[in-house]
Nucleic acid binder design. Structure first.
Lengths: 344, 344
DNA sequence: TTTAGCACTCTTAAGCCAAGAGTGCTAAGA
DNA sequence: TCTTAGCACTCTTGGCTTAAGAGTGCTAAA
């Protein structure tokens, strides 16, 4: 069976109408609403063909057709018209990023919120990636009235992490400040994976005492800056899932929420997309449990040409793809620009 | 109508059975399962009385009875037998707190997780309160390759906050370190509300230049340590709500989730309880929107006799109160002890 | 190749009925 | 006076039937 022009128009009509209404769409509806210039009977024939090709399916004999995963796939790849955001919306996005946001965490959280608000889907922001990150700054501060110290680390990706830890009795604030100086001198510019034994030895040469303490600090550093700790997941608009008519069934909602609660699964889904650019994964194409009735649209954001993380949307397969993609592109673009400025 | 001994036993039986099964309970069931030594007919009379007293209600004529909010209230206040946790469970809780947890955020997050896991309800941990907190330590660190600096503040409650901010071109790392010294000398031990103009003037007297910068730092400090920023909300086990048979109705679930998404509302509910100790709020007693079919049990945790925050559980009014309370008490106790050690 | 016409299928909502659960009332018994 | 057996009554639930409605697929004619 070949895909001719009219079949495409029928498929597009079915997908669009179904996305709009959520009801299976029949031949009569299409004939009436989309003037293809042919009768319902002709459209019926085309729909039967499209079903045989696996692009449409019927919930039951006497219902209209709904797109299959492949149907959506074809629509997204070949038929969908890109939908421009209105200037007002673009302006709105720009304004949201013009607020003073100095911490990258804040920027990403705000991004997820913006996305979910503009699309009424569940939004995710992920990042920043810590591969290629190097240590910018390390500091060990005394916490005066306790037996603790605070380790603060800043990476080149703008991530700030800290951790309190117990120090031995005999360590003075001066010791800590000296250790900070040495650590900074030795570690600055090092990639996280380079925090190895050699470095430790090198540092030992500088500082005679407090070896245990230094070892402890380096261990903590590795812990705190472990790769996955950088890829934080910001999730917004969970409630939106419940508003989708296809998820009236409590069981499905449960599956999806269970998925969203498993942060590693979320990370996997979002990082599965190869490299940069826009990815649309539809229904069964999502290999994680619980979201085989969902579509996930992701796009990466970058700073200075290097991918720093992902943002994306999760909704039903009956997703308003063109809208979702436009919003995502606009937001990712503004986000990249905001971060560009952030990293200077 | 007076409450006699037998009425109490019948009410207790109804509540217990309903909590157990989730089904309206009839007179026959009670006669069979709880041997009160009287016939179903007698129990029927008692139940009619209890209904008239407003403690029980009937979903419809031919169904059994279910407890009303007042019924639960009476049960919780007067009838409920405290339920001890098994030694194994107490040991389990203790073990969970024996892990190395050095950041208070981590401890509270873990607490919420533990609570939700042990009760299958939604769990909340809130804190630490920042009233009475004083500044422990302030530091401004240069971030070398950028035009930014990092402000780090530690309060006496163990809260660590940081914020990146842009500094003028002409500020050197030495300047920052000097500023840090002065800030520390002047601000240490000060309550957050005391960061006022006088302090600023006092500092200006020490440092001739960089007044703008110092002003900026103080402003940031106030922002970062604003009261509510301390009372973080840790939420776990949202999914548990969906498992409750009374929330099969999607609308109710939506209401509850909407409530849980509004952090201020959560804070209000948890802080509404006067002072310390255990609070049980049942159904309509909860004045926030969306949770009038839920019960909220809260308890405060304290360090050195001072309340530092709250933990609690949210479930259906058909909650296993004795279990919830026991778990909560045990966990709050362990939490307090863990923090005692944390603050040394 | 297109389309009008029509029989056919399947869902949905409504109505009805029988079964089951549980009640309230009454009258007899302790 | 309190308790309880007995019974009629009410209300929900599930199953069944029916009618309406939507939409299809097929056939035959244009």
């Amino acid at each position: 069976m070949r895909m001719d022009e009219r079949k495409k128009r029928v498929l597009a009509a079915v997908v669009q109408d179904y996305i709009l209404t959520g009801e299976p769409v029949g031949s009569r509806t299409i004939a009436r609403r989309y003037n293809l210039g042919v009768s319902p009977a002709t459209i019926r024939n085309e729909m039967a063909d499209l079903e045989e090709m696996g692009l449409l399916e019927q919930p039951h004999t006497s219902a209209g057709r709904i797109p299959s995963d492949s149907g959506y796939r074809y629509y997204v790849d070949c038929l969908m018209a890109p939908e421009k955001l209105t200037p007002a919306e673009e302006e709105y996005v720009r304004r949201r990023y013009n607020q003073k946001m100095l911490e990258i965490e804040q920027v990403l959280e705000e991004t997820a919120r913006l996305l979910s608000e503009m699309t009424a889907y569940t939004a995710v922001a992920l990042g920043p990636y810590q591969n290629n990150a190097v240590l910018e700054q390390v500091q060990v501060l005394p916490v005066y009235s306790t037996n603790k110290a605070l380790l603060v680390a800043i990476t080149s990706t703008g991530l700030v992490e800290h951790r309190l830890f117990v120090i031995p009795e005999n360590v003075t604030p001066e010791d800590l400040s000296r250790i900070s100086r040495v650590l900074n001198a030795k570690l600055q510019g090092l990639a996280l994976e380079e925090l190895r034994l050699e470095v430790l030895k090198d540092i030992y040469r500088e500082v005679a005492e407090h070896r245990g303490l230094i070892k402890q600090v380096i261990d903590l550093l590795q812990q705190v800056l472990a790769l996955e700790s950088g890829e934080k997941v910001y999730l917004e608009g969970i409630l939106n899932i419940l508003s989708q008519p296809e998820f009236k069934n409590l069981e499905k909602v449960k599956d999806i929420l269970a998925f969203l609660e498993r942060e590693e699964a979320l990370r996997r889904i979002f990082n599965a997309a190869p490299g940069s650019g826009l990815t649309v994964r539809i229904g069964q194409e999502n290999k994680e449990e619980g979201i085989d009735k969902c579509s996930v649209v992701t796009i990466s954001y970058a700073v200075e040409g290097r991918i720093r993380g992902k943002v994306g949307l999760l909704g039903p397969t009956r997703m308003h793809y063109s809208r979702a993609i436009s919003v995502l592109q606009c937001v990712a673009d503004s986000l990249s620009r905001a971060l560009e400025q952030f990293y200077r």
